[in-house]
Nucleic acid binder design. Sequence first.
DNA 1: ATTCTGACTTGGG
DNA 2: CCCCAAGCCAGAA
Length: 103
Amino acid sequence: MVTHQEIHDVVRCIPRGRVATYGQVAELAGIPGQARRIGYALSALPEDSPIPWQRVVNAKGEISLRSHAGAETLQFKLLRQEGIVFDKNKRIPLPRFQWRPRS
DNA sequence: ATTCTGACTTGGG
DNA sequence: CCCCAAGCCAGAA
């Protein structure tokens, strides 16, 4: 069984200035195909968590909507501070910023 | 114990 | 490129 804790451990490995998709995190955590659980695990984190939750985005390179209002804006700011660039449609060019482990 | 709920992905059209 | 249906399961109630 893979718990929230283990998912958090994977997210903690995403380097500054790069992003990972939910599906990617799911694979690295050993639960391919269960992307939804990543979001659920992250939603359990406080905004000031040491876990870099802001580096996880959906497969289109967009910031996913969530229940806690305003958090998307915070995520957008945090990523820009790390040097992530968004295109006109508020999407991150994944080929350029997606994290590639052990590369 | 059982039911309901999600920060999603993927393949097919 | 966009849209849809199906799949997935830990945690909270």
